[in-house]
């Protein structure tokens, strides 16, 4: 239903400029500029003139600081893997529609829209040592001591999982159900059992979507902040890199140092993305050739 003219140059006229300018300027001014400013600032050290890598040096010489990189990775990677594997299983199994689909997807949207604060508060209550889950388990005799699921690493992972899983599941569900169903049918007619169909036909076609999902979930998990504070040990075992950045900015009022940490965070995320892209290229070179979409 789109009518698009052929001559590219004449398409960008005064009207186009007028329409695009506000949003373009806004994104440039409020996104790109702060970003660049942040990088610039990260190279300034308080009370020292001129450019310097002092902030970065300080970050990487303090185990309390650079240790956050490892901590954050060790939170983000397992979470991402678990979320992805479960989402894939579920999305694949339900690719042809499921009972009460609309109701279930609506309920799954809840964590996303309720937001992380409410979720974390609820997790504290439900999974806490006095919470309903432990009460039920103890009352039914399954355990005698409550599971410690909050104010630690597990609490943060729980929160991350509940936030990321619905999002990843719905994303993959949309992607997988967009794959031409007759590909599956034809594979079965050729003698492939359902597991062969998955392994040799569907998985290669799902791979691009998986890579994107992995990237998105990882990047969002890596930036985890409020749940790390509320459900973890922000001063210790779950001191993530965003906490370190926040503290520099708003507790010690050292903006340059905070910017440096934000840059490091961004670089880690970028590095992970690059790795995912490279990995994907090696794995399925032909997947990009006319993927079988409906």
């Amino acid at each position: 239903m789109r009518a698009v003219a052929n001559d590219e140059r004449s398409e960008f006229d005064a009207l186009a400029l007028f329409c695009l300018l506000p949003s373009l300027l806004y994104v440039l001014a409020m996104f790109v500029y702060p970003f660049l400013y942040g990088v610039y600032l990260s190279l300034q050290v308080q009370k020292i003139d001129g450019f310097s890598l002092g902030n970065y040096v300080a970050f990487f010489s303090d185990a309390y600081q650079y240790g956050t990189i490892w901590i954050t990775f060790s939170l983000a990677i397992p979470t991402t893997i678990i979320v992805l594997v479960l989402s894939l299983c579920l999305a694949y199994g339900m690719r042809r529609g499921f009972f009460m689909e609309r109701t279930i997807t609506t309920i799954l949207i809840m964590p996303i829209s309720l937001g992380v604060i409410l979720l974390s508060e609820g997790i504290l209550g439900f999974y806490g040592s006095q919470g309903w889950l432990n009460q039920m388990l103890i009352a039914s005799g399954l355990i005698s001591e409550p599971f410690i699921l909050t104010h630690n690493y597990i609490g943060v992972m729980l929160a991350l999982f509940m936030q990321q899983f619905p999002f990843c599941f719905l994303m993959l569900l949309g992607y997988i159900s967009g794959i031409d169903p007759s590909l599956e049918s034809s594979a079965r007619m050729l003698g492939a059992t359902p597991s062969v169909v998955f392994r040799r036909v569907m998985l290669p076609l799902i791979a691009p979507g998986l890579a994107i999902a992995f990237a998105l979930v990882f990047v969002m998990s890596f930036a985890v902040f409020p749940s790390a504070v509320m459900l973890g040990q922000p001063a210790g075992a779950t001191r993530t890199i965003s906490i370190a950045a926040y503290q520099k900015a708003f507790e010690q009022y050292d903006m340059p140092a905070a910017s440096a940490i934000a840059v490091v965070m961004g670089l880690c995320q970028l590095a992970a993305l690059v790795l995912i892209i490279l990995f994907r290229r090696r794995l399925s070179p032909a997947a990009t050739m006319g993927v079988g979409k409906r």
Binding site: P34, G38, L41, L216, M220, A245, A249
Partner: peptide, 18 residues
């Protein structure tokens, strides 16, 4: 980009600027 890059990552520089 602003939808994909986590808000914490660009939020700190943005807050600094503002």
């Amino acid at each position: 980009l602003p939808l994909v890059i986590p808000q914490m990552t660009y939020g700190i520089p943005l807050a600094t600027t503002l």
